[in-house]
Design a binder for these strands. Structure first.
Lengths: 201, 201, 201, 201
DNA sequence: CATGAATGAGAATTCATTCAT
DNA sequence: TATGAATGAATTCTCATTCAT
């Protein structure tokens, strides 16, 4: 319906770079602390310490700002997944799965408020970015890993959505997140994948 | 911080009853088709075919309208769960679980757009705490069922959240929901509960 | 510009009489405690315990309600003045003046909040009721008294306005009304009339 | 309960300065001609020839606009009093008093309608307490003058209120203000202060 | 007569976006 | 390029008044 807004131009100069970073940072802070309802471009510009005009130099509209934040979140997720896979290389699948879940939880725990809004308040009139490059890369990684484990690679997408849903559902919504979240989620995902049960120590 | 908004007054007469129903119906339709961003009281009243003043006779503010829709969804969920449990009474736990998952999926499939908004765009700042009466009733049912199955009743809340997350994450967010959704979700939940694996036929 | 609204009809029956009284009482209460800003016909009807429709049976519009309250205040003032004059009959002019001032102050002290609003918030688009029957009667009384004292009767109107201004200005506006208000106002009015100064005891 | 509303920001540039002035002027005009009931921000903005948004850039809300007008009135009053005292320096007290009364009357005659509303229709629920800086300054001036005349300085506040009441009551409310207003009010105030009577020439 | 549901014009205020400087 | 004043469409909500029951 609407196309996903892109940043207006890639900033080349130092000052611009700094401005963009400041704007994103301000946007993240407002979104994290007060939610989408309190998120307006004037406030973002003010908190970023730039004029409202400058904000519109780098972002064609409000949506583009949120989209940029989304992209940043995707990149972080990808990096975290890669790191977790690299660190757990050679271990049994279930342990690798646990490592990935732990990494995702860590990532989300760090910026709880921001992620809550980012994941739950993507405005409905913009189609959900189902097919952004990061998601594709993410799927690729997971598919490769599944294949390496001798599991059905076609389940990568579903596994990712499942993991995402569980992390957000259990971590973001619960006032008091239940202890052993990693274990719970890993169990569920392992159950879905048909991995052999592991006795809880 | 914010209190949960309540309907302003219970309609007694026939005409009023109809007005309230029309308003809720209109609200649901708009929310479902265009999302929260396009949801405004004037449009709701217009679509409902009542004056804007009438809307405010029955709902003290915009939030109360969404809250009423939410409450309705909660009631439907509870009823669906009860029905599923009653219908599968006496069957093995895994089948009962599958029945409940199927019921939840059915329910959500029926009003996809509305539920997407209700579950994901409910503005974060006045999100009702997880301890509303419907959630409590839901937990109670599930806890009783777990106990009857000889499983740990304390996991009811987490199980519910998990089911919720999976249903929404897989059904609502995916452009094209993967086939065999009941099976996928049931597998994951069974894995979490430690139910014995069931060979897929 | 606009004509001063009159009560729609004089109630003859008992029930009606009671309704009108209840409405006026409710109106006075709301005006007194919350001011004109919070004064709306629906609230008045509710507090009076009658339907909003009934209110409009007896008062053609909101203004008429306030006008009726005004008239009531005028009647009370007239009665108080008469009583003060009767009680101080035969005493020296200054004492009579003091008696009238004291009566006016008493009257206003009894319903401070209501009078504040009544006197200060008469809506600007309705001409101030400069020539209502009560004011005329009041002037007549004062003129007669002035003549009896051998003073210039033509000053009655101005004297009344002056007294009114002083009572309202000093009693209604001052957070803590200065002690000896009667004395202060009497002194001022006596000064205006040229009455011989009276040593304060 | 309510805090006194302040202007939102001080305009720096030329255009802004002009806008603020235009807004205040428009507000004064509407208030003067049609009263508080007809005073709404949209109309003010339109008459001022600025967008409604601009109005809200400089005044956080409707009240702040009226407050600004009030403040302006206070400043003018203070200036007029000072001028009158300076011009009548060295004359006998009664003449100085007459000069001050004349100054106040002049001031109010110039913008009759506006002052009527400002003084009498300022909504009661957020009436600023009598202890605003301008009132204090006014009291100070009068107290100093009383002391210089050998009169009781403690009566400054009451004298001010009295003068205020009389000016407003006689000038603003009366359809046709009585002739010789200066004389009448001066007589009354002198009577209150115990100044020796002055034979009317 | 009494009622109160229904109405809708109107009021205050916000905020994404533009454009002159 | 950066700025921020200006804008006005859009939104939420109120309340005087009517009229069918």
């Amino acid at each position: 319906m609407h196309d996903i807004p892109q940043p207006r131009k890639a900033p080349r100069q130092n000052r611009s770079c700094h401005a963009v970073a400041a704007i994103l940072e301000a946007a993240a802070r407002i979104l994290a602390s007060d939610g989408y309802a309190a998120f307006n471009t004037n406030r973002v510009a003010e908190l970023a310490g730039v004029g409202i005009g400058s904000l519109y130099q780098y972002f064609p509209n409000k949506q583009a700002l949120v989209a940029a934040l989304h992209r940043r979140h995707g990149e972080e997720t990808l990096a975290a997944l890669d790191a977790a896979l690299a660190a757990s290389d050679g271990r049994p699948p279930r342990e690798q799965l646990a490592a990935m879940v732990a990494a995702a939880l860590d990532l989300h725990r760090r910026e709880l408020g921001l992620h809550r809004v980012l994941e739950r308040e993507w405005p409905a009139f913009d189609e959900p970015p189902a097919s952004n490059p990061q998601d594709a890369a993410l799927s690729q990684r997971v598919a490769a890993w599944l294949q390496a484990c001798g599991l059905e690679a076609g389940r990568a997408e579903v596994l990712l959505r499942m993991a995402d849903s569980l992390v957000h559902g259990l971590l973001l919504d619960a006032g008091t997140p239940p202890a052993g979240l990693e274990q719970l989620i890993t169990d569920a995902l392992a159950g879905f994948l048909g991995l052999p049960a592991q006795p809880h120590p």
